[in-house]
Design a binder for these strands. Sequence first.
DNA 1: CGCACGGTTGACCTGTATCAAGCCGGGTGG
DNA 2: CCACCCGGCTTGATACAGGTCAACCGTGCG
Lengths: 242, 242
Amino acid sequence: MDMKLKIPYKLEVTCSNCNLLKKCMPLGLNNYELTRIDELVSQRIRVKRGHDLSRLKNGQQSLYIIRTGYFKTVISTNDGRDQVLGFHMAGDSIGLAGELSELYSCQVIALEDSTVCIVPFSNVEEIANSVKGLHSHIRHLYSLEINRENSVMLFLGSMNSEERVATFLLKLSASHEERGFSPIDLNLKMSRYDIASYLGLKHETVSRTLAKFIKSKLIILNLRELKILNLVALNSIATDKH
Amino acid sequence: MDMKLKIPYKLEVTCSNCNLLKKCMPLGLNNYELTRIDELVSQRIRVKRGHDLSRLKNGQQSLYIIRTGYFKTVISTNDGRDQVLGFHMAGDSIGLAGELSELYSCQVIALEDSTVCIVPFSNVEEIANSVKGLHSHIRHLYSLEINRENSVMLFLGSMNSEERVATFLLKLSASHEERGFSPIDLNLKMSRYDIASYLGLKHETVSRTLAKFIKSKLIILNLRELKILNLVALNSIATDKH
DNA sequence: CGCACGGTTGACCTGTATCAAGCCGGGTGG
DNA sequence: CCACCCGGCTTGATACAGGTCAACCGTGCG
């Protein structure tokens, strides 16, 4: 089971022919810079569903960019507590937390078979003087991550269950749309348990809340196939001053 | 009231004679590098209690490093929801979220009269080639912030009120100790309302939980003077598998 | 093919929110 | 300088959202 991880299958892709380039490195690169960017990526690998990307760590601090697939990040303490911190899809960067605290550990679990590009920061340091704006782009990635986490803290700290679930569906919808997929036909890659953990609820509560949304014709749900019928109403549940 | 903000009083301090240097820029700098580091800081300013540091933004993205004093960061949505994201004291860096989402805004409120160094990222870019390790130090600051937020999400998502309050007191204690202050005699700079928002509770619940801790002789509390009597017990409340 | 796990639903319980009253301390204005 | 007042804080009574426990179902994975 671990073989696939230990002897990663190298993918026949370069940044130059990658259709995510514009989202991944939106720097307006010329040809010379493009070939340097290719040198950033030390490996392009496959990760099987259920496997933990963070166990790939080879000592050097790296950025992981999702090419295809779906991941969840999970934090767990030594006293058995754990918490889903986020879900991530094609084009997202993970691994920004860097060297981890000794108090808890982070996992990055593939929710479906996925492919990932690995960018060691040492490569960034080396190539940054040839590629204008690379450092500030990396900084931008960090900002995005911090802003994302801020919005998670907002609903964890101040929303009731309906608001949380509605917010979750809307974010999912938005990130699908951003990538050119339908914003109303969603295929949930994560379990109700994952959603519950992410939202700071129990899985029964997630189930019940979704059932409520079905009853009031906001969504249709069949296992993990979800269709949003009323984005406007969901939005007002998520954002109305209570 | 805004005058102090608009015409900031410049402080007579340089990095070279700042006693926070080792925490702020732990790079083992030589004299040449030290003078370059001084150029990083565009301004050293005072911020009065209650004022919002984020309103200083002059367009360019900057890092703010607390020299003295105490701050809280707050996120607020246009639908009137808000949430304290963290508390910050001397040596901490803030402003890493950078350019903010249009969905919500962040404030950085001084909880007492404070002083702050402002480091525009454009200066970092300029000086980084003279100071080895500066970029990776900045990256380290981001990692710290993300790890801090991860731990906040952990308790927001998975802890009951006693665990949250105990965790809060322990973190406070640890950050005081880290700065050479007593880890058991704490002076709370923030209100019960601030604590409640940070912990995702109501202020009454915080009050009651503290009262419980007083009753079981874990702490003594007089207004905002707090003495921790039993760190061990607090720790087991915070981390025991329930 | 079978079983374990993800998911749903119901009944009940409890922790935290809500509502309300009152206290204390510090800042402000007369 | 004192009195007042307002905001921060505490404490009690009550309500209810969401957690807990339990039973059952479907399905997809091995």
